[in-house]
Design a protein around this nucleic acid. Structure first.
Lengths: 254, 254
DNA sequence: GAGTGGTCTAGACCACACG
DNA sequence: GTGTGGTCTAGACCACTCA
């Protein structure tokens, strides 16, 4: 009868920990500040390190913490709004926007992409690989699949390769025009190559944005872009500028 | 010199496990089939159960497995495409679509929502709570915040409450018309109440869709909908019908 | 009650960053 | 080298489902 809280529904420890630490982040820490290391924190809360880590993982998933091996755990800035809806009739990366370091090879796309492009399952396409940078940070890694049929002028000059070829392919797409697009978003985990470019570990949670581009009455290209789920809030429209921190939601009045 | 694989860059065990099991799912299992239990699987692969679980967690995150306490682990069906872009000038849930079990209270919204609504931080709004069902399964739990200013006809008849009031509020919104909307998607983890309605454990990964509805030149309502990240692929446009399994992406030709 | 996944522990060693 | 987070182990107990 000493305790004020009946334990009829025992909340998991890591869940309670997450709440406690989350509140501490709001009140006692500022963005960029370094937390005590995991062994100290675990001792301080009287739990095993694995349990403490479970709580930190959740907070990292929600974009509130950033952990780097060999460095430490820091308080993450609010997620940035990343606009994913280009104007309906313009190819992204047109001029001086945030896509960088294009590379281009010829490869057979995954069957799901081939299906969208309506090409044969083993037909190779131009495959542009590029990274989207914001504030000097990589936020997305993209593969853009462009069937030969969409860039008919190309085969004549297959001399350039790598970045040079990528630029040529993108320029040809501009000339093609764009009639519309289609999008889907789902949760995934970063492949090893994407993880490297996004400065994360393999398996890190990412938002996979699949875009179908239409031109001349058919699917002219398909893009698969993986966005860092921890740092990005994908926006469609003008919502991007707003300062939203979703965890505010936690404490709402009844 | 007996091994064919040089271990210069030792891949984590759970990562390798995930790949192996993932391939087995493609070749040896069918949707809905039950996997051996975790203790058996761990023994079979010669790893600790915690390591095996790390691999299963990743596969579940990618929507390829479904685990239920007391039951077992089953092969998940491909994610379903859920259309999130209602026609630009129509409120969702208009007539016979997939939103259900509306409830309505009056509550102070989280400050992030109040900011979008341009209401005072402590001003209460009508708060409609409903669940989106597809194929008999709950896929999303939504909170719709409607300031009193958006439904001026209401205060006169505040007699009904609960589901009845919810329907009245939604009907009033229809009358208001809709000029446009705005959306953002980010990764989150399910709060306890959402988790219950989505038939998941608290903390389960969800895609949080924040929508701003415009009418009469201002923000008429804000919706915060949490979609099950394991079973849903959010679509914007017509992409929803396509049969995409994203993990096809894994094995692409070089 | 038997069997499942979920939580938790107390260790150990490894890969990496930084001074 | 020292300190950090990342991986891994071999157990234990709990909450849940179902026959």
């Amino acid at each position: 009868m000493g305790t004020t809280q009946l334990e009829s529904v025992p909340e998991p420890k890591y869940w309670h920990l997450k709440t406690v630490i989350g509140e501490a982040l709001d009140s006692d820490f500022t963005v960029g500040e370094i937390l005590p290391n995991e062994r100290d924190l675990a001792a301080r809360f009287g739990v095993a390190r694995a349990t403490l880590r479970q709580a930190l993982e959740q907070l990292e998933l929600e974009g509130r913490l950033q952990r780097r091996r060999g460095v430490g755990t820091t308080v993450a800035p609010p997620r940035m709004g990343v606009d994913v809806s280009t104007s309906q009739h313009e190819w992204p990366g047109s001029d001086t926007d945030a896509w960088q370091a294009a590379e281009c090879t010829v490869a057979v796309p995954p069957v799901a992409v081939a299906r969208m492009l309506d090409t044969d399952a083993d037909e190779a396409t131009h495959t542009v690989r590029r990274v989207r940078m914001i504030h000097g940070q990589p936020v997305a890694a993209e593969l853009l699949f462009v069937p030969a049929a969409s860039v008919p002028a190309l085969p004549a000059i297959d001399a350039p390769s790598g970045p040079a070829l990528a630029r040529v392919v993108l320029r040809e797409l501009q000339r093609l025009g764009l009639e519309g697009q289609d999008r889907a978003v789902e949760l995934g985990s970063a492949r090893a190559d994407d993880a490297r470019e996004l400065d994360r570990l393999p398996g890190a949670p990412v938002l996979v944005v699949t875009t179908r581009y239409f031109a001349e009455g058919r699917t002219a290209a398909v893009s698969v872009a993986t966005y860092r789920a921890d740092t990005c809030r994908l926006t469609f429209g003008d919502l991007g500028d707003l300062q939203i921190s979703h965890h505010d939601q936690e404490r709402r009045a009844s």
